[in-house]
Design a binder for these strands. Structure first.
Length: 451
RNA sequence: GACCCGUUCGUCUAGCGGUUAGGACACCGCCCUUUCACGGCGGUAACACGGGUUCAAGUCCCGUACGGGUCGCCA
């Protein structure tokens, strides 16, 4: 039987890292085994579900490249894929429970009678977990009063208003859609015995369960929308690459068990399995996520880099059509971790006036004989017959020799004079791109500034 | 509070009875170098605690502590 996994988001907010990571593991597992990944929308709560939220989630999954074989927009043999449209199916399954005497009415709602015995979940990640629902459910913790109260252990599966409830529809759809592996966050582990009881009452063989550890924020508490790195659409805006985000998410709870950490999606698909999934929660580390992105950035082809950096360049006023852009981008590869950091590295090439960094200027001003160095440099470059990297280096070297200093002594003044900063792209290639007249103009301007 | 799950450097992790406890991010130092990066080399840094089992325990068992989760007519 072919593996069928599903991601079942509830469209009540953004796509956050935890959900995306769950989707990724489902996707990877299905693809690894040549199976199908299904997207199902759990929108039974009409009050909280919104179309906007659904769109954000769909966009996020699409951006990550986690394409679904069945679900919204692509259809499939087991639709509809929105639970809000599956009422008839649920009615049919409810009738089964009624026929079996498993349910009863309570104040207009329908409750499922939980069995009074130990139910054992056999989980791919957590192992065997046993619980007695009757015992567990017969007391409820009141968060207001901090007291335990008597409670009805039987679970509500249908509201008085006719709407069905998560536990029931989740199980029915997993049966109906032929889901073979339920991969979800560990927050659902405690719900699983309920689901198992439902599968049994419906006469269905339950799928295999895998409850993956949760991703927490750096404080060790639940990720909230406000935590850095929590929302997928923000990764896109910050200049992350989809595959880098996937790579990092995969690493949060899974390991290839060798020392590799940078993987393409194809490699991930190839390597992912549950023996590599660990069972303790992890804390999100934004720095490492950025590092992973930097690694992916460096592996990009020239064409990919240009295409992906384009929006970020134009956003910061660098004309994408400028024919110096492709060459300039090559200078940014090792100096940026995020696409959004790229413009700053090369911005000076495209600006008509140099914006001088005070600290950088101070560093140069403090040097001995700075005006002499600058004029030698300027003259040397002005007299250079050609303007490629070799000739420029030769010109600077000769200028240095002329005034009895080492070439290195002229490089920093040159960099600050031309680029305004001590950091940024490689100096000589920048001089090439800027052109001889502009370089001379900037150096003269800098010399005047220092006077 | 009850129940469930977990606990290796600050963080992500490898380890599946015998290891100088390995790697990565971050941090520090050195090298390379025209700056900044990249890269290279090196460093600081971990088995939560207490009992067992065993010739031998980070690895197995039991407690404790701590963390997380669940306890909705939310999903």
């Amino acid at each position: 039987m072919s593996v069928r996994t599903r991601f079942a988001p509830s469209p009540t907010g953004f796509l956050h890292i935890g959900g995306a990571r769950t989707a990724l593991y489902n996707w990877l597992y299905a693809k690894h085994h040549g199976g199908q990944f299904i997207l199902r929308v759990e929108d039974t709560d009409a009050e909280r579900s919104t179309a906007e939220s659904m769109q954000v989630i769909l966009d996020g999954l699409q951006w990550l490249g986690l394409d679904w074989d069945e679900g919204p927009g692509v259809g499939g043999d087991f639709g509809p894929y929105n639970q809000s449209e599956r009422g008839e199916i649920y009615d049919r399954y409810l009738a089964k429970l009624e026929a079996g005497g498993y349910v009863y009415e309570d104040d207009g709602a329908i409750r499922f009678r939980v069995p009074d015995r130990t139910i054992t979940v056999n989980d791919l990640v957590c192992g065997e977990v046993s619980v007695n629902l009757k015992e567990q459910g017969s007391r409820r913790y009141n968060t207001e009063t901090k007291q335990e109260e008597e409670a009805n252990p039987d679970i509500v599966i249908k509201r008085p208003n006719g709407g069905y409830i998560f536990h029931f529809v989740n199980v029915v759809d997993d049966i109906e859609m032929g889901i073979t592996h339920v991969i979800r966050g560990e927050d659902h582990l405690s719900n699983t015995p309920k689901h198992l009881a439902l599968f049994e009452a419906l006469g269905a063989t339950p799928p295999t369960f895998a409850h993956i550890p949760l991703n927490l924020n750096p404080n060790g508490t639940k990720m909230s929308k406000r935590d850095q790195g929590a929302l997928i659409h923000e990764y896109q805006e910050s200049g992350f690459l989809p595959d880098a985000v996937n790579n990092y998410m995969a690493l949060l709870g899974w390991s290839a068990k060798d020392d590799r950490e940078i993987f393409s999606m194809a490699e991930l698909k190839d390597l992912f399995d549950f023996d590599g999934v660990n069972n303790s929660n992890s804390k999100f580390d934004y720095d490492k996520c950025k590092w992973v992105n930097g690694e992916h950035l460096r592996h990009l082809s020239n064409g990919e880099l240009q295409e992906l950096a384009g929006p970020f360049l134009s956003r910061s006023g660098i004309p994408a059509a400028d024919d110096r852009v492709p060459a300039a981008l090559q200078l940014t590869r090792e100096r940026a971790q995020l696409l959004s950091e790229i413009p700053a590295v090369i911005a000076t090439i495209f600006e008509s006036e140099v914006s001088y960094d005070d600290a950088a200027v101070a560093k140069v001003t403090g040097q001995d004989d700075i005006q002499n160095k600058l004029s030698a440099l300027t003259a040397g470059l002005a007299n250079s017959s050609g303007w490629d990297e070799v000739e420029i280096k030769a010109a600077i070297s000769a200028a240095a020799e002329g005034i009895g200093v080492k070439m290195g002594a002229l490089m920093l003044p040159c960099r600050v004079g031309v680029m305004g900063s001590t950091s940024g792209a490689d100096l000589v290639p920048v001089l090439v791109l800027l052109g001889q007249p502009e370089v001379i103009r900037r150096l003269k301007g800098f010399s005047a500034l220092l006077d």
